[in-house]
């Protein structure tokens, strides 16, 4: 793990319809780290991710990707993004391969896919265990399989940084295991990962750092809590071991 910062947010503010959603977020993800962004519904975790990719405009602060200000960043092939979706389908039928191929466009010049690009698409499908469904319509897939297709689409460009917004939402147990396995392989190969999660779940062993948001502010930034006793619950109060004795535990608000 080097010190090079892959994602850097400094004092980022954002509004949705004049309501402040982010009130000055600082977040740095260094090369090779796996960082989970946690928080209750409405805490701003999805918005934070969407400012990074430029989907939500910021009203203040600075964002850098790979050391370049986001506005001038053009090297999108280095970023794989899995948006929060329950389906990979659009209004017209499309095969699994067609959807995953669109993830390769960041590496293709003028939208022309060459042999190497088609091979990369096939490898991405292999990684999520969907190679046998390559020619099927995405409409025929289960919720977990949709999510696997969305992740394959992000992997098709062979990115260095993966940004995933709730990849485990609505995913069956078998697919959760496949996704955890896929992510483990990516991390082992040196990928940097920023995950928005509702709960740590099966991905917990992979996560180096947890950043907890509440009401658009960073509440906690440090090692993920250990899952024992009440900590195993999806929402829990985080007690810092180095905090002075008798200090109030940090309440993340996940249970309240």
């Amino acid at each position: 793990m080097s010190d090079e910062s892959v994602i850097s947010l400094r004092g980022v503010r954002a509004e949705l319809g004049s309501r402040p959603v982010l009130r000055g977020i600082d977040l740095t993800v260094r090369r090779g780290q796996v960082v989970a962004l946690l928080g209750a519904n409405g805490s701003g975790k999805s918005t934070a991710v969407r400012t990074i990719i430029g989907q939500v405009p910021v009203t203040g602060g600075e964002i850098e990707l790979f050391g370049t200000p986001r506005r001038r960043f053009r090297d999108w092939a280095r970023v794989g993004y899995v948006p929060q979706r329950t389906t990979a389908a659009g209004g017209v039928p499309a095969t699994v391969t067609e959807v995953v191929s669109s993830g390769r466009l960041s590496r293709a010049r003028f939208g022309v896919l060459r042999k190497a690009d088609h091979e990369a698409v096939r490898r991405a499908l292999d990684l999520v265990g969907m190679a046998d469904r390559a020619k099927d319509s995405v409409n025929a897939l289960s919720g977990g399989q949709h999510q696997r297709v969305l992740i394959a689409r992000a992997l098709a460009a062979e990115p260095e940084l993966l940004i995933m917004d709730e990849p485990m939402a609505g995913v069956d147990l078998a697919s959760q295991e496949v996704l955890a396995q896929t992510l483990r392989a990516q991390v082992a190969a040196g990928a940097t990962v920023l995950l928005v999660l509702h709960e740590l779940g099966p991905l917990e062993p992979l996560i180096d750092r947890a950043v907890v948001l509440r009401d658009g502010c960073v509440l906690h930034d440090g090692p993920p809590p250990e899952a024992v006793g009440q900590h195993a619950l999806p929402g829990h109060d985080h007690v810092h071991p180095h905090a002075p004795a008798g200090a109030e535990p940090i309440r993340t608000g996940l249970l309240s």
Binding site: W76, S102, L105
Partner: peptide
């Protein structure tokens, strides 16, 4: 290919540049 990507998922298409 470009129109397919944008029409399928606008948010994702933005991240492919």
């Amino acid at each position: 290919r470009q129109l397919f990507a944008v029409s399928q998922d606008e948010e994702f298409a933005r991240v492919t540049g």
